[in-house]
Write a protein that binds this DNA or RNA. Structure first.
Lengths: 214, 214
DNA sequence: CCTACCGATCGGTAGG
DNA sequence: CCTACCGATCGGTAGG
């Protein structure tokens, strides 16, 4: 039997229903995708009726757009802070990896697919740009420092551009924010994420290959 | 004006309407996702009416299942062939990468998401297993040879398991089968894929880091 | 923020 | 493999 929760769990009543909706929308949209999440599911998970959503957002796309924008902006702040103190590049990158693995608990590829195929061209343009500014550029900046300091090869010597490094880095991390096969318990979750972060960083700094073979 | 193509382009009339449907289904499902592709879109792209699909497949899920199974089986054959001749591991892996980049022109992550969240538990079990057997195991076998031959570190010396190597390898390749941002023309497409394949293989064999810094 | 309700579209079926 | 059609569900609106 499914009980309808009309009184939301952690809501101190006021003008913050909008924030509740955005939080719930993130959990559902990011897990199942834009198309698969209905406005009725969203409303019920918030303890509201479906038409009530339209008091806070013009339509489903506006709600999705606001949610993604808020999410990207929050992450951008931290990444830009980490990019500013690029002392030891491998150490900073590991912090970036740990932060993202803990903060991004969803499928980035799914989000980008939704942005590309489920939203209007205008909404897509906005989010593409914000993703570039908020995710790729700060990480690329760290990689640029890593190249300058000699940790990584530049494009003239067989390496790739900072943006390409950042893109590869994000792709690899997404492997661990969304497991390819089955899931395990939550006690070892934290430990797994730290070792995953180390693994990805080590892969970039050439510590998986056998040096005797080079 | 949208003309309905009642006579499919390349169909030599007979019992192969089913094959036409499967081909069209792959293009649409793999690009837009299970939920977003309607049975009417599929039928129209095949030059059929929507109920005609149900003469060949019991329902939408059965159609999707058959399509993915056929696709995985075809790829499995080639990967197993490549895994059998593991002479020079880096060279074989580059061939695997080139093959997959040319053969898999869609978003593997989207497919895995559909398998996980849009299909029945039974269908999911079947496809999870086939993906494991058809994609991961053959590639893991090559990596295992690479570890044995000393190209890569084993788990006891800071490396990871062959399956983990294979999983990372597939994740990285998916970055290039589904571009993170905009698309370019098709003339440079082939060249791009070859250099992408080389890049991914080099990343694993530690040729992106600066050896002087190790 | 609710009740009541709308047109459109979905996957699937009947019957030939 | 077609025409005709079904119940369910979708995003969104009216009106209070």
């Amino acid at each position: 039997m499914v009980r309808k929760a009309r009184k939301p769990l952690a809501q101190e009543e006021g003008g913050e229903t909008r924030e509740l909706i955005l939080r719930v929308a993130q959990q559902l949209f990011m897990k199942y995708g834009y198309r698969s999440v209905t406005t009725r599911q969203l409303a019920e998970a918030c303890g509201l009726t479906q038409p009530a959503l339209y008091h806070h957002f013009a339509d489903k796309q506006e709600l999705y757009l606001a949610m993604v924008q808020e999410e990207i902006t929050k992450i951008r702040v931290t990444l830009e802070r980490l990019a500013r103190r690029s002392e030891d590049v491998p150490a900073v990158l590991k912090q970036v990896a740990i932060f993202l693995l803990n903060r991004v608990q969803y499928d980035l590829g799914l989000m980008l697919h939704d942005v590309r195929y489920e939203l209007s061209p205008d909404a897509r343009r906005v989010l593409d740009e914000q993703f570039h500014q908020g995710f790729l550029l700060p990480i690329a900046q760290i990689f640029a420092t890593g190249i300058r300091q000699g940790y990584l090869l530049d494009e003239a010597h067989g390496g790739i551009s900072p943006i390409s490094f950042a893109s590869l880095f994000l792709t690899l991390l997404s492997r661990f924010t969304t497991p390819l096969r089955e899931e395990t318990d939550l006690t070892t979750h934290q430990a797994r994420q730290t070792s995953a972060a180390e693994l990805v960083v080590r892969l970039f700094f050439s510590e998986l290959g056998n040096p005797d073979k080079r």
